[in-house]
Each structure stands twice: as C-alpha cells, then as structure tokens.
C-alpha cells in the first residue's frame, strides 16, 4: 500500500503549503475563468505542479492527464510540458499569468507524448520558444496524425487548434543545456532512449529538484514506448543521483523517490523476465500477453489499458537480444 502513503502525504502537503490559485482571483475574474484555470500546488518555493488526472484522456477530464510544471526565477519563467491540447496550453499560460507577472521565456517539452506535447501551439503563437530533445522533432513528425486525430476523437471541440509544434531549441545527449531564469538555473539533459527516444530531464539547482516527467510513473502504470532495456539502464543511473526530490510525469511527488524508482524497476524487470521466458520456449506475442506480469495488476492504475501493450513492445525488443 505504498501508493496510499504517497497520496496521503501529498494531500497533506497540498493543504498545508499550496497556493490555491483561484483564491488570488477577483470574484468576477474567477467566475469568468474558473473553468479554465489549472489547479497548481507549490511543491517548493517557485516550483508549481499541476497533477494530471489518473485516467486516459477523455472529454470529462479534457485531456488534462499529465503533470505540468511552472518554475519561476527572479527574472523569467519556464514551463515544463504544455498539456494535451491547444486549449490546455492556453489555460496553462493564463494560469501562469496569475502566479507571476514575469514573462514565460521557455516551454520545455519533456517528450513526444500527446498529453505533454500537444498544448505547445498556445506557446508558439505567443512566440515562446519550445525546447526539446534533439530527437523530438523527428518523433513528432512521424506521429503527427497518429497523435492529433485521437485527441480530436476524445475531446471533440475542446481539441480545436491542437497541432504538432516542433521544438525551436534542441538538447543533445552529452551536452546539457542551462536555462537561466534569474537566480535560478535549470539544467536540461537529453537522456538515451528509455520511456521514448526523446526524454528530457530538468534539474532545478535552486530547489535541488529533478523533474523526471515520464521517466517515472507513480501509481499509474509505466508505458514502454522507447526501449525497455534502455529505460532500465537510465533508471539505474538516475537512482544514483543525489537530489532531494523528483517529480514524476504522472502521479504524486513521492516522499521516498528512490523507493518509487525501485517499484517501477520491479515492474519493468518483471516484464523483461517474463517475456524472455516466453521467447525461450518458442511462444509469441499472444502467449506473452496472456501470461506475463499479470501479478502486478493490483499495483498499478490503468493496468488493463497499457500492460498488454507494454508486453507487446517488450517482446518486439527482446526477441532481438
């Protein structure tokens, strides 16, 4: 029941320390835009987090399923991930304007997935540069229709204006990029292929906080869309880091982040072990889907939605070992 502990801690923290942004609004503005304001919590001084719904994107949650971040320096602001639609990106920028008068200097897109990347059009139209992994442009280009169409199907009119935006600034592996927010430096690192082939991590030097985005899933089942073995290797390296806190792409900020990483490693290693066993006995994807990793079912949210797909991806990778 580790995940309940996370949740409780997080709720306690949010009632104690968070700024409920709606409270900052005048009553009339509140009535006008309450529906569009995103609910952020301040998880460290100047670091704001919007928790995504633990669901698949649908009209009810408006596609607001990814964790999003706002980091405020002395002179400027960086936003981490844009949300899943143009409208969510727009609401995100409106919400930032209620947190601070400082300008948004960068949108950092942590990886290609629609729930994180597809709100970027709202930033692009305001001339805010988009920063991403060097592989992000290619990855998004290949998936343009494959990503936008399902969002239109899921969100209807709420998806209006949603399109793929390619990054203006790219980060290459082995060459970290620093963004200076004034009195606060963000270190961006392009990771080797893991969750996807375009994962970017953001380290906030001031808060000693590492934004892992979807390299870490808490409570919600991890999704393998890059390389299972690559991801395990990256997690091994990340778990050696000495930082006070990490922020996952989905789920609450873990109180013990190394335990959260270990829990995810456990799931991914179970996938690798089970799939290798099926391959060794001459089975195919269908047999693997029917048998591998099912005991983890009650440990992860949305298991039925993604586990079989993870097994399929693991199989297609591991059969080449």
């Amino acid at each position: 029941m580790i995940h309940h502990a996370y949740l409780t801690t997080n709720l306690a923290m949010s009632t104690r320390a968070c700024i409920l942004l709606l409270a900052l609004l005048t009553p009339s503005a509140q009535a006008q835009s309450a529906a569009d304001a995103l609910q952020f919590v301040e998880i460290a001084p100047g670091v704001y987090l919007r928790h995504g719904a633990m669901e698949v994107a649908n009209a009810g949650n408006r596609g607001h399923i990814a964790n999003l971040g706002v980091i405020v320096g002395d002179e400027r602001v960086a936003v981490i991930d844009a949300g899943g639609s143009y409208n969510e990106g727009k609401a995100l920028l409106d919400t930032v304007a209620r947190i601070t008068d400082l300008p948004v200097a960068w949108l950092i897109v942590t990886h290609m997935h629609p729930d994180h990347a597809l709100g970027a059009a709202a930033f692009a139209e305001r001339g805010i540069p988009v920063v991403g992994h060097v592989n992000l442009a290619d990855a998004l280009s290949r998936r343009r229709d494959a990503y936008v169409k399902p969002v239109i199907e899921a969100l209807g009119r709420d998806a209006d204006g949603t399109r793929v935006v390619l990054p203006d600034v790219t980060v290459m592996p082995g060459r970290d990029v620093e963004l200076d927010l004034g009195g606060r430096v963000l270190q961006l690192r392009a990771q080797p292929t893991a969750h996807t082939n375009n994962d970017l991590t953001v380290y906030d030097t001031k808060a000693d906080l590492l934004w892992l985005s979807d390299l870490l899933f808490v409570e919600r089942i991890p999704v393998v869309d890059g390389s299972l073995l690559g991801w395990l290797a990256v997690l091994e390296v990340l778990s050696q880091r000495n930082v006070s806190r990490v922020v996952p792409g989905h789920g609450p900020v873990p109180t013990d982040w190394k335990a959260a990483i270990a829990r995810q490693q456990d799931y991914l290693e179970g996938l690798a072990r089970g799939v290798r066993e099926v391959i060794r006995h001459g089975g195919g994807i269908a047999q693997a889907v029917a048998s591998v990793g099912l005991s983890a079912r009650d440990r992860w949210e949305l298991f039925d939605e993604y586990h079989g797909r993870n097994v399929t991806a693991a199989f297609a990778e591991l059969e080449w070992e």
């Binding site: 592989n135 082939n197 890059g226 390389s227």
Partner: peptide
Amino acid sequence: SGGCSAPALKDPAA
C-alpha cells in the same frame, strides 16, 4: 485502427 500510418519505430536510428 491506425496501424498502417502509425510509426511503430521507437528508435529509427537504431
């Protein structure tokens, strides 16, 4: 749906 136009390639360089 979408299997023909969706990229399965997770790591095109590799």
